[in-house]
Structure formats: structure tokens, C-alpha cells
Design a binder for these strands. Structure first.
Lengths: 351, 351
DNA sequence: TTGTAAGCGTTATCAG
DNA sequence: CTGATAACGCTTACAA
């Protein structure tokens, strides 16, 4: 490894002069500056950022803690983040939590040892109102940008999140506008604020339309394709026959759609399906879905902007990004006017 | 930030004693060790890894340079890598190249400044036999594990890659065994060794079956869904009517499949489709595809093993990982025995 | 078992 | 414009 010292020796100058010449800072005669620069290039000098950081107290490191990079939404967000980081002359340390609190804690602790200047945190959501590592981050005054919805245990960090509630309500309103009156909802995990917001958006839209949100139309699914399939089967078992289904995400929607198609139902002729878009653009799935396009890349940009503000010592304001409804041929008016009222679960209508 | 010095002051001891106590190294009285430990915990001490590294000359950092983390294959590989890295007490610096040589060079240079101990490199493939930054890596003796196929400009680095040629040949043999004699190939970018291997595997299998690989059945596609669609349209335009299609990857296959389905063809009744699996398990696409399952996670593991060997100062042996053919209902015997011989492009039969 | 001195590669600071 | 000195937080090497 070539060090400043080595260049200084070759140049017959002090380390300091070389350092200054290379940084272009301070006044150094143009002549020597060029000479040093050439020499450094020739010798393949690469400054040691850690050593510099030791002295200047800035490491130029940002941490990203993410459930898993396999999630396409998160991956796109990460891409944006990394591009922005490089532009701002930061390097990115990546760590996965696999949605496990212990791993999350270990990750964060390691990153703290790296003296990261800021942390992008996609939290592992828990119901508990407190989490020790989050408390520690607060005490340390670590600059944290939460990428996701705030929850009790992480409330006081500035955050960037999608307007899930509004977007979900828009989906429901879209279905209502088409004439659907019996809309089932395949819900996600109750520990996930995003999933909860989506359920709440559905309920709010129903209420605003003067209807009663019937819980017999809400099925606990999860986040995976299988979860959607199981939920759809349960729905059929229970004799519930909605004219439309709204799912907490694309995967769940696809799982449900596959089940329905295998039952001989046609989409959207017999039943409409809508939900949030998590994978690809879902246009490439041959299951017709009307989806909410999530602003993945913009989420990354917004997160970085917030971080920049924090790094400048500002307060940093949380932001909610709108999501856009991508209406496709997957949703259509209900096949026939559903019976109004009706007592049994299957025909339980909002009204 | 709490430093060793601070703990030492509070404990009435030297920095050295504290350092030793915390590391558990050397002989320190069990009593003081516990006392120091407790004190450190209470004060929230986190050792500064960079400072330590400055002294010990190991940074505990590994770099990953990747086209984009959006690619599901790469994302899974990255996940494995990160998990392994953490297990080995390394942190991971992530950088994207976006497939652009200049960005790649900039990334690598930055990582060198971080004094990474090793670099996982998913190269930006170019046809040129030399690339300056690769030469520099060689000269520096940086420990590099190539994740991908070797190419002239990066030949001398140890690598981990999938047995694309063999896997591709297996696909073709599978189609041949079903009785297909007119198999089209939708090829990828010629700069990508993996794509080239896949084309070569197809050709080899045909030759081994005593057939002539007819280039009129090979269409340049690319890597995206749209590329597959365009290639399929071109194929149809040129009047080529294969009984089976083999694609360089899943996306291309899906693009082609969508076009064929929209033309009223049924899969696999009228035409069979097979290729490499890049997205999800493609089981969830309602386009029937027989695919090659790529050992994404094992690729990550193997890369890390290779890196460990390099770090131990060993030579490090390149490895090729086999890929498994996932046969599904997407491939079936050809609808009718194709005409043997035949002069025009459309019916151009092998042998 | 504990302490002292020195140094890792860089830059802040003050002096010339 | 350039140099000398000290320091960032930690650990190695040697001394007590």
C-alpha cells in the first residue's frame, strides 16, 4: 500500500505538503501540486478513508438495515439509496435482519462500531412499545431515517413511508365506483403498520360510502402467494362469494387469483381483483390485477433527502409519499347486482 | 462517543488494561475484567472498528460490486453473501455498476480506499480483452472473487459460476427427447459469457443428437420481457414455426410466451417453452415454462468459501455449480411430427 | 497482572 | 507556500 509518506519521500517533501497538494486545499504552488498529483497517480496512491476519518471524525459511511434484499420493493429502494449515497460521497454498509429482532439488534450494533454517520432502518415491526436497541439509538443521537411506517417503539425517528391508507382507500373506492358492494379483503400481518393501514383504508372507504365494513369479508392472509391461496380457499369454504377481492399485496392477490381461476371463475368477468403491487409491475403476471404502484425509487430518494437534512443538523421532516392506482382490465363491474341485505355470511352485503 | 480512555478514567486504570479486559486477551484478573466489562456496558461503549483496523491492518470489510440488486438472482446471491460475511465477522460494502464500465471503475476505486480485504465482483462484461481497473486489481493483489463467468479481461481471477453450458444443453436434450426437431433459440447479449454459454449449450446438444444447428432458428433477443416479445414477433414475421422455444432466460421466455398466447397458440399443446429461471420460481407466472433452477444461494456460499480461501492466503479454486432442470407441464411432445427436411426458413428442420 | 511508549495513515493547527 | 508537531482511538511490544 502506498502511503502519503512514500510519496513524500519520493518527492523530497513533507507528508503535509503532499496531503495538501492532493486535496487541493490550502495554498500549494500549482507546480508542486501537479508534480505530486502525477507522482501519486503513478504510484497508485489511494488515500485511506478510515485513517482520514479517524482524524476528521467523519467516516463517510451510511448503514442500511433491511429485512431482505430479495423483496423487490426493498431492492429498488436500496438501489436508489445507493446511487444517492455515492453521489453524496458516502459508502453504504448493508445488513439483513431477516425480520428477526435479535439479528436486527446485532446488525445495528455492528454498524455503530463502524461509526456510520447515518442509518437507514427498515424496522422489524413488533407490537411491544419499546425495543432496547431503538432506545439506544435515541440516546446516542444516531441519525436514523426510518423507511416505513412509524410504530410505538420507533415513533420518534423521522420516517419516509407510502400513503398506504389513502392508496388502499382509493382501491376500494375504485371498486365501489364500479358497482361492487361485496368486496372481500385479504389482510396481511397485524404487526405490520403498512398492512394495517391498508385494511384501515378499505374500511374507511366503505364507511365513507355509507356502508358497514363487515368483518366476515375480511380474511387473514399473510404476505406470500401461499397465504393468498389459503385465504381464498377459506373464503370459498365459508361460502363467502364476493364480487371483488382486495388484497394486502400482489403476492396474496396472485395466490387468491390462482385459486379462483382453478375454480373456473373468470377475472374480471366473474370476480375482480385489486391490491398493492409488490412484484414486477404485475403486468407480466397473467393474472389480471389492478394494483397500487408503489413509489419505490422515490422512496429511496426521499429517504436520502431526509438523511441529508439530518446530517446538516436540521430536524428532518417525516414524509408520506402518494402511491398511484394502476387500473387495468382486471377490475370490471360486478357480474350481476348482488342481493341487498341478506342474512347468511355468503351474501353478507355492506349496506 | 465513549472511548477506552473514558472507561479507563472512570475505572482508575490505564487504557491498555481496559483494552485487554474487553478483548479477554492476555491475562487480566478476572475481577477487574468483569468490572471493566460492566462499566463498558453501562457506559454504552462500542469499539471503533476503523481505529482498531488502522493498527491491526485488517478492516473487516468486504466489497460487493453488482450490476443491480434488482435482479432477483443477484439479490439472492447477495443475501447469502451478507449472511456469510456476518458469520465471518465481516461487514459488507455495497456498490452498483448499472452495467456501466465507468461506474464500475469508480465503485471499485472507492472500495479500495476503504481498504476492503476482499472484493466480490459481478463484472460488467465487455468484449475488450483488457480493462485498466482489472489490471490495477491484479497489480495491487486485491483478493477478488469473480461471481460470474471468466472473460478475457478478468480471466486470472478465481471465479464462481453456474454451469450454464451444461444446463442449457440439458434443456435442449429434454426438448429433443420429447420429440421436438424444430427448436428455436432466443439468445441474449453476445457480450455476456453466460448468455453465450447458453446458446452454445443448445448448439452442442443439437450437434450431439446428430443435427445441424440452423442459425435461422436463432433470434437475438436480449434480457428483458420486451426483448422476448420482439424476438417472437420477428420469428413469426419471418415465417419460422418451431414446435418448441428455448430462451436465454425467463423474462425473454415470458415475453415470447405472451406473444404466442395472444396469437392463439396454446402452451404446451401447440408449442413448448423452456429456458433459464431468473424470476421468482416462475411457477407463479401463469405462462407455463420449463426452467433451469439456478443455485443462487449456493452461488453466494461458494463465493464466500472461495474468498475465505483467498484470505487464508491459499490459491483459491474456481468453481462451477450445476443447475437443476425443473421440468413442468410446459413442455410436451410436439403437436405433430414436423416435416423432415424442407427448404424454406419456416420449416427449416435440423438434419 | 498492569503500565509505558510508540505507531497505524491521515489531517488540524500553528509556526516559519 | 511549506514544515513541525500532535492528535484521532486503538493495539503491539516490551518493561515493571
Amino acid at each position: 500500500m502506498v502511503r502519503l509518506k512514500d510519496i513524500a519521500a519520493r518527492a523530497g517533501l513533507t507528508v503535509m505538503t503532499v496531503s495538501r497538494a492532493l486535496r487541493g486545499t490550502s495554498e500549494v504552488s500549482a507546480a508542486t501540486r501537479e508534480r505530486i498529483r502525477a507522482l501519486a497517480a503513478e504510484m497508485g496512491y489511494v488515500p485511506d478513508i478510515s485513517a482520514r476519518g479517524l482524524r476528521t471524525r467523519n467516516t463517510g459511511l451510511l448503514g442500511v438495515v433491511i429485512p431482505t434484499v430479495i423483496d423487490p420493493i426493498h431492492a429498488r429502494m436500496l438501489l436508489a439509496l445507493e446511487e444517492q449515497a455515492r453521489a453524496g460521497d458516502f459508502d453504504l454498509l448493508l445488513a439483513h435482519t431477516l425480520q428477526q429482532p435479535e439479528i436486527e439488534e446485532a446488525c445495528i450494533r455492528r454498524l455503530l462500531g463502524r461509526r456510520i454517520e447515518g442509518l437507514f432502518l427498515l424496522p422489524v415491526y413488533r407490537l411491544a412499545p419499546e425495543a432496547p436497541i431503538y432506545r439506544e439509538l435515541r440516546q446516542r443521537g444516531t441519525k436514523v431515517v426510518l423507511v416505513g411506517h412509524p410504530a410505538p417503539f420507533c415513533q420518534d425517528f423521522p420516517s419516509v413511508a407510502v400513503e398506504d391508507l389513502l392508496a388502499s382507500a382509493a382501491v376500494t373506492r375504485h371498486l365501489l365506483a364500479l358497482g361492487h358492494r361485496r368486496i372481500a379483503f385479504l389482510a396481511g400481518s397485524p404487526t405490520s403498520p403498512a398492512a394495517r393501514e391498508r385494511l384501515e383504508g378499505y374500511r374507511r372507504a366503505l364507511r365513507e360510502a355509507g356502508m358497514v365494513a363487515d368483518d366476515r369479508l375480511v380474511f387473514n392472509a399473510g404476505t406470500e402467494i401461499e397465504d393468498g391461496a389459503h385465504a381464498a380457499l377459506r373464503m370459498i369454504d365459508e361460502g363467502v362469494r364476493p364480487t371483488a377481492i382486495q388484497a394486502v399485496n400482489d403476492l396474496v392477490a396472485i395466490g387468491a387469483a390462482n385459486v379462483l381461476l382453478s375454480q373456473g371463475l373468470r377475472i374480471p368477468a366473474d370476480i375482480s381483483i385489486a391490491g398493492f403491487g409488490n412484484i414486477l409491475t404485475s403486468e407480466y403476471f397473467r393474472v389480471p390485477l389492478t394494483t397500487v404502484r408503489q413509489p419505490k425509487y422515490r422512496l429511496g430518494l426521499a429517504a436520502m433527502e431526509l438523511m441529508q437534512a439530518l446530517l446538516r443538523g436540521e430536524k428532518g421532516e417525516s414524509r408520506r409519499l402518494p402511491a398511484e392506482l394502476a387500473i387495468r382490465e382486471s377490475t370490471a363491474p360486478p357480474p350481476a347486482l348482488p342481493p341487498v341485505g341478506g342474512g347468511e355470511a355468503g351474501s353478507a352485503a355492506h349496506s
